[in-house]
């Protein structure tokens, strides 16, 4: 499903990932751990086709991302749900409009958008908050709104970057359970975290990074 072969990612003056090879199978539940700056976000972005690797190959859904043009890569991103570490919510749009953005991009009809957004908000427990602006939501609710946006296209792969960061234990548990439930219905789940309690609860396989290299 996702295959990294000798992947290196260089940023100006910095090697964020060095010679990383690993594989995440269909329906798997995988946690990426490591200290701050270890390269977790970098790995997830490469897996989602948000960035291109400097060297090595990343294959997702059977497609080598290096071989895809910008348009094909954008279209591939529609098939992968991504929960960003910094949320990336639009603060001048309400909950419904934020969740609808990926559908709008994909060109769904208004009625179909309405239906899918409601289903998505329902799954994360935000039904009835469609009109709420992001600032009116708590940290945990904002996190769930991001998850609703990530699953609205019904992706087979769901990637979440520190979805429990900055949340109290109770909210964090609810979020982890949400991902477990998605995984139980067949969605491949890839999550980064350095919160040991959440990692315990999530279970599944672990990938550990240290200074850009795979250590376990």
């Amino acid at each position: 499903m996702i295959q990294f072969s000798a992947v290196t990612q260089r940023y100006p003056g910095r090697e964020a990932l060095r010679d990383v090879s690993c594989e995440i199978g269909t329906g798997e539940r995988v946690a990426v751990t490591g200290h701050s700056g270890a390269g977790k976000t970098t790995l997830l972005k490469l897996a989602a086709g948000i960035e291109r690797a400097s060297a090595g190959s990343v294959v997702v859904h059977g497609q080598n991302l290096a071989a895809l043009g910008e348009t094909a890569l954008a279209v591939l991103r529609r098939r992968i749900g991504f929960v960003f570490q910094d949320h990336k919510l639009l603060f001048d749009r309400n909950a419904h409009e934020n969740v609808a953005l990926p559908l709008q991009v994909s060109g769904f009809t208004r009625a179909e958008m309405q239906r899918r957004v409601r289903a998505s908000l329902d799954k994360v427990g935000l039904l009835g908050r469609e009109k709420a602006m992001p600032v009116a939501l708590s940290g945990g609710e904002q996190q769930r709104l991001c998850i609703a946006r990530a699953i609205v296209n019904r992706p087979a792969i769901l990637i979440a970057d520190e979805p429990t960061g900055n949340l109290d234990a109770e909210s964090a548990r609810a979020i982890v359970e949400l991902f477990s439930s998605f995984n139980q219905v067949g969605v491949t789940v890839l999550i980064s975290s350095h919160d040991e309690a959440s990692l315990e609860r999530l279970g599944g396989r672990r990938i550990t990074l240290a200074q850009g290299a795979l250590v376990a």
Binding site: F84, L101, V105
Partner: peptide, 16 residues
């Protein structure tokens, strides 16, 4: 700008 960047992240092509 923000809207454009987020749209691109969730799969908007240059044409979109």
């Amino acid at each position: 700008r923000e809207e454009i960047q987020v749209s691109q992240l969730v799969g908007a092509t240059a044409a979109d």
